Computed example of a mutant assay.
Amino acid sequence: MALEDELKRAIVAMPQKEKDKLLLRLVAKDDMLVKRLEFELIEQGDTVQERRDDIKRRILKVAKMTHDSPGWMMMDMRTFSGDISQHIKITKDKYGEIELTIYLLLTFFEYQSEMLRVHNSKSDSCAEYIAKKADGLMKKLAKFDTDYYVDFERDVQQLLDYIHSHCPRSYARTLDIPKQWP
């Protein structure tokens, strides 16, 4: 809802102490804003790598676990995708978004390769999810500064090899995901 000009002027004219109280009450109602302000104002933006490393540690721990089915594994991957999205909203870390997404997919392939090898009714949803995630990743990489390609080249190629040799391969063909990168 947009503020009327008259209300804007009245708010600006309020005593500073009252504006501060209002601001603090409003900020407290938005969890994402609170996290972003903590990152920017308290951590001064210096904890990006620590935040990435924390997400990687959690991904690795879960990827090493025994999963009952590809469906349960996909749910874990979706949870981590949400964590990555939240990381991006808080830090604006575009490089980290690509790095963490590659890490997520690659780590699950490395530790759950057997479960992802064959495409069947149990692995179909997971296969589609992985292919769509990889397709989105490839589109983001295409828009990313090519100077960083060398940082991702080996891992992206390994990921593409997994995608084209495991259960997501039919979806990868449909989405026209390349077999080689760049």
Results as ranks from 00 to 15, higher is better:
residue 40 E to K: 12
residue 62 V to E: 11
residue 29 K to T: 12
residue 88 I to H: 07
residue 54 D to R: 15
residue 66 T to Q: 12
residue 97 E to C: 00
residue 41 L to E: 13
residue 33 L to H: 07
residue 124 D to L: 03
residue 55 I to V: 12
residue 103 Y to L: 05
residue 80 F to L: 02
residue 74 M to A: 07
residue 126 C to E: 07
residue 109 F to Y: 15
residue 75 M to A: 10
residue 79 T to Y: 13
residue 119 H to A: 00
residue 57 R to T: 06
residue 97 E to V: 01
residue 44 Q to L: 14
residue 22 L to M: 14
residue 69 S to E: 01
residue 68 D to L: 12
residue 24 L to Q: 14
residue 105 L to F: 02
residue 23 L to M: 14
residue 60 L to C: 00
residue 83 D to G: 00
residue 101 T to Y: 01
residue 110 E to T: 06
residue 100 L to Q: 05
residue 66 T to L: 08
residue 110 E to M: 05
residue 44 Q to D: 09
residue 67 H to K: 12
residue 84 I to N: 07
residue 29 K to H: 08
residue 71 G to Y: 08
residue 60 L to G: 01
residue 113 S to F: 02
residue 73 M to Y: 01
residue 79 T to P: 00
residue 70 P to E: 05
residue 100 L to V: 03
residue 44 Q to Y: 09
residue 22 L to G: 12
residue 46 D to T: 15
residue 47 T to Q: 14
residue 52 R to S: 02
residue 87 H to T: 02
residue 96 G to Y: 06
residue 82 G to W: 03
residue 40 E to A: 12
residue 36 R to A: 05
residue 36 R to S: 09
residue 43 E to N: 11
residue 83 D to Y: 11
residue 30 D to R: 13
residue 39 F to I: 05
residue 86 Q to M: 10
residue 90 I to L: 06
residue 80 F to Q: 04
residue 51 R to M: 14
residue 84 I to C: 04
residue 71 G to Q: 08
residue 124 D to T: 00
residue 51 R to Q: 13
residue 92 K to W: 05
residue 95 Y to D: 09
residue 29 K to W: 06
residue 94 K to H: 11
residue 114 E to I: 08
residue 99 E to D: 15
residue 35 K to M: 11
residue 78 R to H: 06
residue 45 G to A: 04
residue 105 L to C: 05
residue 60 L to E: 12
residue 65 M to R: 15
residue 48 V to G: 01
residue 104 L to I: 07
residue 69 S to Y: 03
residue 68 D to Q: 12
residue 87 H to G: 03
residue 56 K to R: 14
residue 65 M to A: 13
residue 59 I to G: 04
residue 76 D to Q: 10
residue 28 A to I: 03
residue 62 V to R: 14
residue 46 D to S: 13
residue 122 K to I: 00
residue 57 R to N: 11
residue 79 T to C: 02
residue 102 I to T: 04
residue 83 D to A: 11
residue 70 P to L: 02
residue 72 W to D: 11
residue 24 L to S: 11
residue 30 D to C: 07
residue 70 P to K: 02
residue 109 F to D: 06
residue 118 V to C: 00
residue 106 L to I: 02
residue 50 E to Q: 15
residue 122 K to N: 10
residue 113 S to C: 01
residue 73 M to C: 05
residue 111 Y to N: 13
residue 31 D to R: 10
residue 55 I to A: 04
residue 57 R to E: 08
residue 126 C to M: 04
residue 39 F to S: 09
residue 91 T to I: 06
residue 31 D to Q: 09
residue 101 T to K: 12
residue 93 D to A: 03
residue 40 E to N: 11
residue 37 L to S: 04
residue 59 I to R: 10
residue 78 R to A: 10
residue 93 D to Y: 07
residue 49 Q to G: 02
residue 73 M to L: 15
residue 49 Q to V: 14
residue 34 V to A: 08
residue 110 E to I: 03
residue 24 L to K: 15
residue 100 L to I: 06
residue 40 E to C: 04
residue 35 K to A: 10
residue 34 V to W: 11
residue 88 I to S: 03
residue 99 E to V: 01
residue 40 E to L: 14
residue 102 I to A: 03
residue 125 S to Q: 13
residue 120 N to C: 06
residue 79 T to W: 07
residue 65 M to V: 02
residue 107 T to R: 08
